[in-house]
Amino acid sequence: MAETGELAGRRESALLEVRGLRTNFNTKHGSVRAVDDISFSMARGETVGIVGESGCGKSVTALSIMRLISEPGRVEGGEVLFGGRDLLKLSQSEMRKIRGNKIAMIFQEPMTSLNPVLTVGSQISEVLRLHERLNRRDAAARAVEMLSVVNIPAPEKRVHEYPHQLSGGMRQRVMIAMALCCKPDVLICDEPTTALDVTIQAQIISLIEDLKDKTGAAVMMITHDLGVISGISDRVIVMYSGRIIEEGTKMDVLTNPLHPYTEGLLNAIPRIDLDCDELKVIPGMVPNPAFLPEGCHFRPRCADARGICLKEPQPVAAAGNTGPRTVRCWKYLPDWRSA
Protein backbone atom coordinates (compact mmCIF):
# COMPACT_ATOMS: atom_id res chain seq x y z
CA MET A 1 0.00 0.00 0.00
CA ALA A 2 1.40 3.38 -0.99
CA GLU A 3 2.02 5.60 1.97
CA THR A 4 3.57 9.00 2.40
CA GLY A 5 6.13 9.51 5.12
CA GLU A 6 3.68 11.71 6.95
CA LEU A 7 1.01 9.02 7.03
CA ALA A 8 3.44 6.41 8.26
CA GLY A 9 4.58 8.78 10.98
CA ARG A 10 1.07 9.32 12.23
CA ARG A 11 0.41 5.59 12.29
CA GLU A 12 3.10 5.06 14.86
CA SER A 13 1.28 7.23 17.36
CA ALA A 14 -2.02 5.58 16.50
CA LEU A 15 -4.28 4.47 19.35
CA LEU A 16 -6.14 2.00 17.19
CA GLU A 17 -4.88 0.72 13.91
CA VAL A 18 -6.69 -1.54 11.50
CA ARG A 19 -4.59 -3.26 8.85
CA GLY A 20 -5.91 -5.24 5.90
CA LEU A 21 -9.12 -6.23 7.69
CA ARG A 22 -11.24 -8.72 5.77
CA THR A 23 -14.62 -10.03 6.91
CA ASN A 24 -16.64 -12.56 4.96
CA PHE A 25 -20.16 -13.87 5.25
CA ASN A 26 -20.93 -17.37 4.12
CA THR A 27 -24.16 -17.34 2.18
CA LYS A 28 -25.83 -19.65 -0.27
CA HIS A 29 -24.04 -17.72 -3.03
CA GLY A 30 -20.73 -18.65 -1.49
CA SER A 31 -18.43 -16.52 0.58
CA VAL A 32 -19.37 -12.84 0.41
CA ARG A 33 -16.75 -10.27 1.22
CA ALA A 34 -18.42 -7.60 3.35
CA VAL A 35 -15.21 -5.87 4.38
CA ASP A 36 -12.35 -6.08 1.92
CA ASP A 37 -8.82 -5.13 2.92
CA ILE A 38 -9.58 -2.14 5.11
CA SER A 39 -6.76 -0.20 6.73
CA PHE A 40 -6.98 2.96 8.79
CA SER A 41 -5.87 4.33 12.10
CA MET A 42 -7.19 6.55 14.84
CA ALA A 43 -5.20 8.80 17.12
CA ARG A 44 -6.10 9.62 20.71
CA GLY A 45 -8.83 12.26 20.92
CA GLU A 46 -9.52 12.11 17.21
CA THR A 47 -12.94 11.75 15.62
CA VAL A 48 -13.01 9.69 12.47
CA GLY A 49 -16.16 9.63 10.41
CA ILE A 50 -16.90 6.55 8.35
CA VAL A 51 -19.44 7.32 5.70
CA GLY A 52 -21.13 5.23 3.05
CA GLU A 53 -24.44 3.82 1.89
CA SER A 54 -26.24 0.99 3.71
CA GLY A 55 -24.48 -2.29 3.16
CA CYS A 56 -21.09 -0.79 2.35
CA GLY A 57 -19.48 -2.52 5.32
CA LYS A 58 -19.34 0.31 7.87
CA SER A 59 -21.07 -1.57 10.65
CA VAL A 60 -19.34 -4.82 9.82
CA THR A 61 -16.00 -3.01 10.16
CA ALA A 62 -17.01 -1.78 13.63
CA LEU A 63 -18.29 -5.18 14.73
CA SER A 64 -15.14 -6.84 13.39
CA ILE A 65 -13.00 -4.53 15.52
CA MET A 66 -15.09 -5.48 18.55
CA ARG A 67 -15.02 -9.11 17.43
CA LEU A 68 -18.79 -9.22 17.64
CA ILE A 69 -19.33 -10.68 14.18
CA SER A 70 -21.56 -13.70 14.55
CA GLU A 71 -22.26 -16.63 12.26
CA PRO A 72 -22.35 -16.84 9.27
CA GLY A 73 -19.85 -13.96 9.33
CA ARG A 74 -16.14 -14.41 9.99
CA VAL A 75 -13.12 -12.13 10.20
CA GLU A 76 -10.84 -13.77 7.65
CA GLY A 77 -7.72 -11.71 7.95
CA GLY A 78 -5.92 -8.56 8.92
CA GLU A 79 -4.91 -7.01 12.21
CA VAL A 80 -6.56 -4.72 14.71
CA LEU A 81 -3.78 -3.20 16.75
CA PHE A 82 -4.75 -1.64 20.05
CA GLY A 83 -2.38 -0.93 22.92
CA GLY A 84 0.36 -2.90 21.16
CA ARG A 85 -1.75 -6.03 20.82
CA ASP A 86 -3.64 -7.54 17.91
CA LEU A 87 -7.24 -7.79 19.11
CA LEU A 88 -7.97 -10.48 16.55
CA LYS A 89 -5.47 -12.76 18.27
CA LEU A 90 -6.69 -12.27 21.86
CA SER A 91 -8.50 -15.01 23.72
CA GLN A 92 -12.21 -14.53 24.32
CA SER A 93 -11.67 -13.67 27.98
CA GLU A 94 -8.97 -11.10 27.17
CA MET A 95 -11.23 -9.60 24.54
CA ARG A 96 -14.05 -9.32 27.06
CA LYS A 97 -11.83 -7.16 29.25
CA ILE A 98 -11.51 -4.73 26.36
CA ARG A 99 -15.13 -4.63 25.25
CA GLY A 100 -17.17 -2.07 27.13
CA ASN A 101 -14.05 -1.06 29.03
CA LYS A 102 -11.33 0.14 26.64
CA ILE A 103 -13.43 0.10 23.48
CA ALA A 104 -17.13 0.79 23.85
CA MET A 105 -19.86 0.88 21.30
CA ILE A 106 -23.14 2.72 20.79
CA PHE A 107 -25.65 1.18 18.42
CA GLN A 108 -28.08 2.49 15.90
CA GLU A 109 -31.34 1.41 17.45
CA PRO A 110 -31.82 2.82 20.94
CA MET A 111 -35.30 1.28 20.95
CA THR A 112 -34.06 -2.29 20.74
CA SER A 113 -30.51 -2.07 22.00
CA LEU A 114 -31.43 -1.93 25.67
CA ASN A 115 -32.69 -4.99 27.48
CA PRO A 116 -36.45 -4.51 28.05
CA VAL A 117 -36.61 -6.50 31.27
CA LEU A 118 -33.78 -4.83 33.18
CA THR A 119 -33.82 -1.32 34.66
CA VAL A 120 -31.54 1.21 32.97
CA GLY A 121 -29.67 1.57 36.25
CA SER A 122 -28.87 -2.11 36.44
CA GLN A 123 -27.76 -2.12 32.81
CA ILE A 124 -25.30 0.67 33.51
CA SER A 125 -24.04 -0.59 36.85
CA GLU A 126 -23.50 -4.04 35.35
CA VAL A 127 -20.64 -2.61 33.27
CA LEU A 128 -19.11 -0.89 36.29
CA ARG A 129 -19.32 -3.98 38.44
CA LEU A 130 -17.74 -6.04 35.69
CA HIS A 131 -14.85 -3.81 34.66
CA GLU A 132 -14.25 -1.59 37.66
CA ARG A 133 -15.12 -4.22 40.24
CA LEU A 134 -17.42 -1.83 42.07
CA ASN A 135 -19.82 -3.24 44.65
CA ARG A 136 -23.55 -3.06 44.10
CA ARG A 137 -24.09 0.18 46.01
CA ASP A 138 -21.17 2.12 44.49
CA ALA A 139 -22.08 0.95 41.01
CA ALA A 140 -25.68 2.10 41.53
CA ALA A 141 -24.47 5.49 42.70
CA ARG A 142 -22.18 5.82 39.70
CA ALA A 143 -25.05 4.87 37.39
CA VAL A 144 -27.06 7.83 38.73
CA GLU A 145 -24.02 10.03 38.24
CA MET A 146 -23.59 8.83 34.65
CA LEU A 147 -27.23 9.58 33.85
CA SER A 148 -26.74 13.14 35.00
CA VAL A 149 -23.54 13.37 32.92
CA VAL A 150 -25.58 12.58 29.81
CA ASN A 151 -28.12 15.24 30.86
CA ILE A 152 -31.01 13.04 31.86
CA PRO A 153 -33.24 14.97 34.27
CA ALA A 154 -34.11 13.39 37.63
CA PRO A 155 -31.48 10.66 37.25
CA GLU A 156 -32.12 9.18 40.70
CA LYS A 157 -35.67 8.43 39.57
CA ARG A 158 -34.83 7.38 36.00
CA VAL A 159 -32.28 4.88 37.18
CA HIS A 160 -35.10 2.64 38.41
CA GLU A 161 -37.04 2.83 35.18
CA TYR A 162 -37.20 0.37 32.33
CA PRO A 163 -36.27 1.21 28.73
CA HIS A 164 -39.91 1.28 27.57
CA GLN A 165 -40.55 4.18 29.92
CA LEU A 166 -37.97 6.36 28.19
CA SER A 167 -38.12 8.19 24.87
CA GLY A 168 -35.78 7.31 21.99
CA GLY A 169 -33.46 10.22 22.71
CA MET A 170 -33.34 9.29 26.41
CA ARG A 171 -32.53 5.70 25.58
CA GLN A 172 -29.68 6.77 23.34
CA ARG A 173 -28.40 8.89 26.23
CA VAL A 174 -28.56 5.80 28.42
CA MET A 175 -26.57 3.91 25.79
CA ILE A 176 -23.99 6.68 25.79
CA ALA A 177 -23.83 6.64 29.60
CA MET A 178 -23.36 2.88 29.48
CA ALA A 179 -20.62 3.15 26.85
CA LEU A 180 -18.74 5.92 28.60
CA CYS A 181 -18.98 4.79 32.22
CA CYS A 182 -15.62 3.01 32.14
CA LYS A 183 -13.95 5.90 30.30
CA PRO A 184 -13.05 3.99 27.14
CA ASP A 185 -10.14 4.97 24.91
CA VAL A 186 -12.19 4.34 21.81
CA LEU A 187 -15.89 4.95 21.37
CA ILE A 188 -17.48 3.41 18.30
CA CYS A 189 -20.79 5.03 17.38
CA ASP A 190 -22.71 3.01 14.81
CA GLU A 191 -25.25 5.44 13.34
CA PRO A 192 -26.19 6.74 16.79
CA THR A 193 -28.66 9.30 15.49
CA THR A 194 -30.27 7.56 12.53
CA ALA A 195 -33.34 6.45 14.46
CA LEU A 196 -33.89 9.80 16.17
CA ASP A 197 -35.69 13.06 15.39
CA VAL A 198 -33.58 15.77 13.80
CA THR A 199 -33.64 18.00 16.90
CA ILE A 200 -32.68 15.09 19.13
CA GLN A 201 -29.94 14.13 16.62
CA ALA A 202 -28.22 17.45 17.11
CA GLN A 203 -28.40 17.10 20.90
CA ILE A 204 -26.94 13.61 20.84
CA ILE A 205 -24.13 14.61 18.48
CA SER A 206 -23.15 17.58 20.59
CA LEU A 207 -23.34 15.39 23.72
CA ILE A 208 -20.95 12.87 22.17
CA GLU A 209 -18.65 15.70 21.06
CA ASP A 210 -18.73 17.22 24.52
CA LEU A 211 -18.02 13.96 26.34
CA LYS A 212 -15.27 13.12 23.88
CA ASP A 213 -13.53 16.36 24.78
CA LYS A 214 -13.91 15.60 28.49
CA THR A 215 -12.67 12.02 28.38
CA GLY A 216 -10.19 12.29 25.52
CA ALA A 217 -11.61 9.23 23.83
CA ALA A 218 -11.14 8.63 20.12
CA VAL A 219 -14.50 8.44 18.38
CA MET A 220 -15.36 6.39 15.34
CA MET A 221 -18.55 7.90 13.96
CA ILE A 222 -20.26 5.60 11.50
CA THR A 223 -23.01 7.26 9.53
CA HIS A 224 -24.58 7.66 6.13
CA ASP A 225 -25.41 11.26 7.00
CA LEU A 226 -22.84 13.71 5.66
CA GLY A 227 -24.39 16.37 7.89
CA VAL A 228 -23.34 14.43 10.98
CA ILE A 229 -19.86 13.99 9.53
CA SER A 230 -19.46 17.68 8.79
CA GLY A 231 -20.55 18.49 12.33
CA ILE A 232 -18.25 16.22 14.26
CA SER A 233 -15.37 14.61 12.36
CA ASP A 234 -11.71 15.47 12.14
CA ARG A 235 -11.10 12.94 9.41
CA VAL A 236 -13.43 11.20 6.99
CA ILE A 237 -13.25 7.72 5.54
CA VAL A 238 -15.57 7.01 2.60
CA MET A 239 -16.51 3.38 2.05
CA TYR A 240 -18.05 1.77 -0.97
CA SER A 241 -19.01 -1.91 -1.17
CA GLY A 242 -16.57 -3.13 1.43
CA ARG A 243 -13.60 -0.94 0.56
CA ILE A 244 -12.24 2.40 1.62
CA ILE A 245 -12.27 4.51 -1.49
CA GLU A 246 -11.24 7.85 -0.07
CA GLU A 247 -9.75 9.12 3.14
CA GLY A 248 -8.67 12.57 4.24
CA THR A 249 -9.41 15.48 6.53
CA LYS A 250 -13.01 16.57 6.73
CA MET A 251 -12.22 19.85 4.99
CA ASP A 252 -10.45 18.18 2.08
CA VAL A 253 -12.97 15.43 1.49
CA LEU A 254 -16.08 17.57 1.82
CA THR A 255 -14.85 20.56 -0.15
CA ASN A 256 -12.68 18.85 -2.72
CA PRO A 257 -13.77 15.24 -3.21
CA LEU A 258 -11.43 13.19 -5.38
CA HIS A 259 -13.28 9.93 -5.92
CA PRO A 260 -16.21 10.12 -8.36
CA TYR A 261 -18.39 8.36 -5.75
CA THR A 262 -17.64 10.93 -3.04
CA GLU A 263 -18.31 13.64 -5.54
CA GLY A 264 -21.65 12.02 -6.40
CA LEU A 265 -22.56 11.74 -2.72
CA LEU A 266 -21.86 15.40 -2.09
CA ASN A 267 -23.77 16.44 -5.21
CA ALA A 268 -26.74 14.39 -4.07
CA ILE A 269 -27.27 16.60 -1.02
CA PRO A 270 -30.14 18.93 -1.82
CA ARG A 271 -29.12 22.55 -1.38
CA ILE A 272 -31.50 25.29 -0.46
CA ASP A 273 -29.26 28.06 -1.82
CA LEU A 274 -29.11 26.70 -5.35
CA ASP A 275 -31.98 26.73 -7.75
CA CYS A 276 -32.48 23.32 -9.27
CA ASP A 277 -35.49 21.38 -10.49
CA GLU A 278 -34.33 17.87 -9.88
CA LEU A 279 -32.40 16.14 -7.13
CA LYS A 280 -29.10 14.81 -8.35
CA VAL A 281 -28.62 11.10 -7.89
CA ILE A 282 -25.85 8.64 -8.57
CA PRO A 283 -27.21 6.38 -11.34
CA GLY A 284 -27.51 2.67 -10.66
CA MET A 285 -27.48 0.80 -7.38
CA VAL A 286 -24.96 -0.40 -4.83
CA PRO A 287 -23.75 -3.77 -6.15
CA ASN A 288 -24.91 -6.94 -4.43
CA PRO A 289 -21.89 -8.07 -2.38
CA ALA A 290 -22.41 -11.60 -3.72
CA PHE A 291 -21.95 -10.42 -7.30
CA LEU A 292 -19.36 -7.67 -7.25
CA PRO A 293 -18.27 -6.12 -10.53
CA GLU A 294 -14.75 -6.83 -11.69
CA GLY A 295 -12.07 -4.25 -10.90
CA CYS A 296 -13.29 -1.06 -9.32
CA HIS A 297 -16.63 -1.76 -7.60
CA PHE A 298 -17.95 1.66 -8.54
CA ARG A 299 -17.15 1.25 -12.23
CA PRO A 300 -20.68 0.40 -13.46
CA ARG A 301 -22.05 3.62 -11.93
CA CYS A 302 -19.08 5.84 -12.71
CA ALA A 303 -19.31 8.46 -15.48
CA ASP A 304 -15.52 8.55 -15.87
CA ALA A 305 -14.97 4.78 -16.17
CA ARG A 306 -12.48 3.57 -18.76
CA GLY A 307 -11.11 0.19 -19.77
CA ILE A 308 -8.42 0.29 -17.10
CA CYS A 309 -11.12 0.36 -14.38
CA LEU A 310 -11.71 -3.34 -15.03
CA LYS A 311 -8.50 -3.83 -13.09
CA GLU A 312 -8.54 -3.28 -9.37
CA PRO A 313 -7.29 0.19 -8.36
CA GLN A 314 -4.92 0.50 -5.41
CA PRO A 315 -5.08 3.31 -2.87
CA VAL A 316 -2.85 6.20 -3.78
CA ALA A 317 -1.69 9.15 -1.72
CA ALA A 318 -2.96 12.49 -2.97
CA ALA A 319 -2.21 16.05 -2.08
CA GLY A 320 -4.47 17.43 0.61
CA ASN A 321 -4.78 21.04 1.64
CA THR A 322 -5.24 20.38 5.33
CA GLY A 323 -3.65 16.97 5.81
CA PRO A 324 -2.69 13.69 4.22
CA ARG A 325 -5.26 11.91 2.07
CA THR A 326 -5.60 8.81 -0.03
CA VAL A 327 -7.95 7.84 -2.82
CA ARG A 328 -8.61 4.54 -4.51
CA CYS A 329 -9.28 5.44 -8.13
CA TRP A 330 -7.45 4.97 -11.42
CA LYS A 331 -7.92 8.66 -12.22
CA TYR A 332 -5.14 9.50 -9.79
CA LEU A 333 -2.72 6.86 -10.99
CA PRO A 334 -0.11 7.48 -13.70
CA ASP A 335 -1.64 4.79 -15.96
CA TRP A 336 -4.83 6.83 -16.38
CA ARG A 337 -3.55 9.09 -19.15
CA SER A 338 -2.32 6.19 -21.25
CA ALA A 339 -5.52 4.17 -20.67
Partner: peptide
Protein backbone atom coordinates in the same frame (compact mmCIF):
# COMPACT_ATOMS: atom_id res chain seq x y z
CA UNK B 1 -25.34 -7.69 21.02
CA UNK B 2 -25.24 -4.75 23.43
CA UNK B 3 -24.69 -7.14 26.33
CA UNK B 4 -21.80 -8.76 24.48
CA UNK B 5 -20.38 -5.35 23.57
CA UNK B 6 -20.24 -4.57 27.30
CA UNK B 7 -17.76 -7.39 27.72
CA UNK B 8 -20.07 -9.67 29.68
Amino acid sequence: RTARAKGL
